[in-house]
Design a protein around this nucleic acid. Structure first.
Length: 520
RNA sequence: GGCGGAGUAGCUCAGUCGGUUAGAGCGGGGGAAUCAUAAUCCCUGUGUCGGGGGUUCGAAUCCCUCCUCCGCUACCA
């Protein structure tokens, strides 16, 4: 297969159970992966969990388990969720895997060999209780003039031995990169932020810690573990077999897209390319920082008690409804606000009433009036041609362009426009009336709709794989025809001429009840 | 404080390299139809395009200013 496409999500930090943001990012990546596979590209899609770092160590200690045990458990929740959400990743990555330690150390040695790592001392305000350094500006004044951390714990000026990465050396190379490849960081607003940050000057980065040991050991210095981001970012390489010269590395690196949340753009758009330049490794093609989902306009947090379990949403409304909602409702890249009412309303009006009902009424007419035999096309009118032209344009052109550009909401908006056109068409043609007056015309109308519905279904297979495969299966559309190119071809006559018989159609998307009360 | 983004119909938003009467969906109102998941289709919006000022033949779209909200402002991830 040609044209490889390597796509990654951020590896998720499992110091808590997965939340809606994890689901959002991973579903979006999955849709993109499925879209490219559907178009014939050879896709490699990686997600996983980032298990090192201070917080995991602290949390494990609080719970009285080892970090590894905690990681095993928490990582499992992510795996389970992704299975439930129909995520089609090729690799679920865990930074605690042994080969990952080897890869991170190889990257480290490459940066060291390039003269970009040096041992020095890290000085700063350190809170023993928080096990963290704070910037002077973050400190608050306590009673008696003592300085306190933002958490109100005492801090003291501490000096620690640490390895540093010569980030300062990469200011100009990074600025050159951003200029030469304007699409390296998307969306534009994130790019501007990064640009300004780098233009403001870069300080060398402390990249090792001696205060805890849950991480990847620095080669030759066992008392140091790598700063979590060094090893976290390396996962994109390890997943392909780095540092070995694997077939996967050759085929899929550099990555086509790192899909991440807007909060970690800096690590991916500044540190990561600098590390790679230092190590002499090709840079990924694009970093896209998506927006956050807000619960009724508010950020979800445990203290507010407004967290949402994405698995529960999937159980409540259906995986495909949730997937559709998340991509349809928000402009990818911008923050968005969601609510149970919004999910129910979107699902009922678009999936149940508009598309589901279109399929149901069309297939029912064929089932009842033609005994399940797909009707022949006799003579197409201008109305038929106009409808098919509209649907083909959307399915064959507008949606692929939008998907490829991560403009999911636009793709689905165009899709809805085509669904509306089908409903307007069926009402104008009124095949139920033609049944008595012009049976042949009725057949042509139903055949036209059948082809249109199949095309519309194929177009949203990446978004709603389960439901659409069920529909297309019921419609007798072969698996190999379920891609935007094949479904635009003349497959209908062959199918109708064969011995395929339509069974009694079943509803695709049941209407949802509005939640009586907002769950706490 | 500095830098950046945003403020468009009841709601959610699209639209800005200046140009015919500013758009969509949802909700509301009216009508049609009854094949279908009581779903669908048609009709229906007098909106100060955050306020004010300016440039222009002409601005939601460019400039200035003010107000409001949000983001970034490096070593938790």
């Amino acid at each position: 297969m040609a044209d490889p496409f390597y796509l990654t999500t951020a590896i998720h930090y499992p110091n808590g159970k997965p939340h809606i943001g994890h689901a959002y990012e991973t579903i979006a990546a999955d849709v993109l992966a499925r879209f490219h596979r559907q178009g014939g590209r050879e896709v490699r899609f990686q997600t996983g969990t980032d298990e090192h770092g201070l917080k995991m160590a602290q949390k494990a200690r609080d719970l009285g388990v080892t970090p590894r045990e905690l990681a095993d458990e928490m990582s499992g929740y992510f795996r389970d969720l992704f299975a439930k959400l129909d995520i089609s990743h090729d690799r679920f990555f865990r930074t605690s895997e042994a080969e990952h330690h080897r890869a991170s150390q190889a990257l480290w040695r490459a940066m060291e060999a390039n003269g970009d790592l040096y041992l020095d001392r890290y000085e700063g305000w350190y809170s023993i209780r928080d096990e963290a350094y704070y910037d002077e500006s973050e400190l608050v004044d306590g009673e008696g003039g003592d300085k306190l951390s933002p958490q109100g714990t005492p801090v003291e000026w501490t000096v620690e031995e640490s390895w540093f990465f010569r980030l300062s050396k990469y200011q100009q190379p990074l600025l050159d990169l951003y200029r030469e490849r304007p699409d390296f960081i998307r969306p534009e607003s994130r790019r501007n932020e990064v640009l300004r940050f780098v233009e403001g000057g870069l300080r060398d980065l402390s990249v090792s810690r001696t205060s805890f040991d849950w991480g990847v050991k620095v080669p030759g210095h066992d008392d140091h573990v790598m700063y979590v981001w060094v090893d976290a970012l390396t996962n994109y390489l390890t997943g392909l077999g780095f540092p070995d010269d694997t077939e996967e590395m050759a085929r899929f690196w550099p990555a086509d897209l790192h899909l991440i949340g807007k909060d970690i753009v800096r690590f991916h758009a500044v540190y990561w390319p600098a590390f790679l330049m230092s190590a002499g490794i090709a840079l990924p093609k694009q970093v896209f920082g998506h927006g956050f989902l807000l619960n009724r306009g508010q950020k979800e947090s445990k203290s507010l008690g407004n967290t949402t379990d994405p698995g529960e949403l999937a159980d409540l409304y259906g995986v495909d409804v949730l997937r559709y909602f998340l991509l349809r409702e928000f402009s990818f890249g911008q923050d968005g606000s969601y609510s149970h009412e919004a999910i129910v309303s979107r699902s009922n009006s678009e999936l149940a009433n508009s598309f589901g009902n279109l399929a149901q009424r069309t297939l029912s007419l064929i089932f009842k009036n033609c005994d399940g035999v797909l009707p022949s096309v006799h003579e197409r009118t201008a109305e038929d041609d106009a409808l098919l032209a509209h649907v083909s344009r959307v399915v064959g052109k507008e949606m692929p362009v939008a998907y490829a550009d991560l403009a999911f909401a636009q793709a689905l908006e165009a899709w809805m426009g085509a669904v509306f056109a089908c409903n307007a068409y069926i009402d104008a043609q009124a095949p139920w009336a033609l049944k008595k007056t012009d049976f042949k015309r009725m057949e042509t109308v139903l055949a036209t709709l059948y082809a249109a519905i199949a095309q519309l279904a194929v177009a949203v297979v990446p978004v709603m794989p389960g439901s659409m495969d069920r529909l297309l299966g019921a419609m007798g559309v072969d698996a190999h025809q379920r891609d935007p190119a094949a479904i635009l071809e003349e497959w209908y006559a062959a199918l109708a001429g064969g011995d395929f018989r339509l069974a009694k159609p079943e509803g695709l998307f049941p209407r949802l009840e509005a939640p009586a009360q907002e769950p706490a």
